Every structure is written in C-alpha cells, then in structure tokens.
Amino acid sequence: MSNTVEIDNVSKRYGRIEAVRGVSFALPPGETVALVGHNGAGKTTLIKLMLGLVHPTEGSVKILGEHPAAGEFAARRRLGYLPENVSFNAALTGRELLSFYARLKGESPTQAMALLDRVGLAAAASRRVGTYSKGMRQRLGLAQALIGEPALLLLDEPTTGLDPALRQSFYEIVQELRDRGATVVLSSHALTELEERTDRVVIINRGLMVANGSLDALRRIARLPTRIRLHLTGGRPPHLPGWLEAAGAWRPVNGHVVELDALPEQKMDLLRQAIHADHALEDIEVVPPTLDELYAHFLRSQEDAR
C-alpha cells in the first residue's frame, strides 16, 4: 500500500528565514503521528506544505499520490484540516457554516449535519457562531475537518479549549478514523496527552527533523533510564538490602516507597532482584521515559551537536 504522505528532502525559505531544512519522512495509511516541536520549530510550515498552501523551496511533497506544487491538487478534497486558531463568520449558525464547508468539498450538507451531533453541537446548531464559546468553536472546527471522512487529517493544537470529557471524545473520533485507514497528524504541545495515542513521533527543532519513530524506538535510541518504584510493606527498613544499595542512584519517595533509575540493560535484572528479595513488596511501578523527557533529550542532543 502506498504512503499517504511522502516528504523528500524538503526545505522552505521565507526570504532569509529557513523554516524547514532538509526534512524527509513518509506516513502510511492507518497511522497516528505526533508532530512535536516548540513554537517556530517548523511544524505549521510542514502542515501548510502538506495542504498545498505553500510550496517547497527545495525537495518534493507528495500527498495521496499527488504533488501539491504541480498545479491542480484534486486530493485536497480528501484532506481535513483544523488550524490552531479557528476563525469563522460569526453571523452564520453552526448548521449554515457546516453546510457551506460541505459544499466546498462537494459533500452532501445533509450528511455533514451528523457531524454536529458527533462533536456535541447538535443542540447549538441553530445558534449563531458568534455566541459560541472557545471550546464550542473548536468543536465546530473539528466537525468541518471531518467532512467527507478524510484520508489525511491534519490537526494543529486540536484540543485547545476542550474539557477532559470532550478531549476523550475527540481522541475516540481520531481512533475511529485511523481504524478506517486514515492518516492522522497531531501537532500539539500537550505531550502527556499524546503519549499513549500516537503510533509515531516526529520531533522538529529549528526546521530540522531531530527524531522520527515510535515511542519504543525513541526510548531505545535515547537510552534514558526507567524509573522503578518499590512500595515496601510496613515502611522502609533501616537497612536496605544489599542489591538495592549496590544499584546506586536510589532515593526515598516517602516513608515506604523507594525509587531508583535503571538503564535499559539493567531494568530486567533489577526487577528480578526486587521480586525475589527477602523484604516484602506491596507493589512495583515501572515508569519508562515520558514523551516530555524524550523531547527534551533529543533537543539537547541537537544543541550539543552544533
């Protein structure tokens, strides 16, 4: 099966500013990808390149088998896009606005109306958008992005303004689309939120791609320690067992929890020793490096290499 997105050695310059520099990656169907980077890193430029709103200075972009820079970009009708800051005509109702976007994409306005219910706006469909809260406008933006069940969905800070329940509903919709074969690109600063919801992470810094892979793959590359927390029965004894003392960087968390860092090659051995130790354990927590920690690591690595 061919890739949904193919970015090949792409650079984009605005005068003297090089927003994207020599980036290459491919995204297959049925994958959720987190596009991660600080403000100004190049994320939004990459999204605009995929949408065909701007063209690369160098390299090539191929979306659903077409080159947006080549002229007619018919595949755009199979794309969905939610910008970071949604802006709609405040005088239109939610129903009128969604009908307008459905017609732009050649879709049935009647079928598009079901999306208002899907994002929790059915009761507000007849209200003018100017009366909507920020969270409601964000949900309306998501509804327009979903028109026509896009094969590629590009979402820039999609959960801004959504409460926890609506965030959960949003990610359920994303999962449904992915299960149907759509490629979903999530650009967000909410890294903890993305951690368990993406198949792959692409990290961008200063226009360069500094990491690309699954969380497991990035953890193997980064070799950051895993935190192991031992919950000891009856509180921490005055003298810890020899194996724990020998483990090195352990630290008390509270009266009955001890935490230590384990490098990848140490983790299984330390866990086996903990399970077979003489003292009783109530629980063991294994906390792998988080996406926040991986993001900071790869950015530091890039800065150190300069």
Rank of each mutant, 00 (worst) to 15 (best):
A277W: 07
L166G: 12
A145K: 09
E58A: 14
R178P: 05
V253T: 06
L116A: 06
T226L: 01
P288W: 04
A145R: 11
Q144M: 10
L92Y: 13
P56Q: 12
L240Y: 07
S133L: 13
R21C: 07
S24F: 08
M113Y: 00
R21E: 11
D163P: 08
Y101T: 05
T233G: 04
H297V: 00
D283C: 01
Q273E: 09
F298M: 04
G52A: 13
V210K: 06
Q111F: 02
K12S: 04
R236I: 09
L263K: 10
D269A: 15
L208C: 14
S60E: 14
A70N: 14
E157M: 05
R128C: 12
L232W: 02
T192R: 01
I47R: 02
A249F: 01
G130R: 09
T159C: 02
L162A: 08
V61W: 08
T32M: 09
G65D: 04
N39G: 06
A145G: 11
V258G: 02
T45Q: 07
G255N: 00
M50F: 04
L92I: 08
T233R: 14
R103Q: 14
M209I: 08
S2M: 01
T192Q: 01
V23F: 06
L260S: 07
G65R: 10
L92H: 13
L46M: 14
L98W: 09
I204G: 04
Y132N: 11
A69I: 09
R306M: 02
P264L: 03
M50N: 14
E195L: 02
F25A: 01
M209N: 04
V287A: 01
L92V: 08
F100V: 15
H279M: 14
E72W: 12
A217S: 05
L291H: 07
A122W: 10
E18K: 11
L224G: 01
N3H: 14
S11G: 07
P164Q: 12
H38T: 13
L115M: 06
L154T: 13
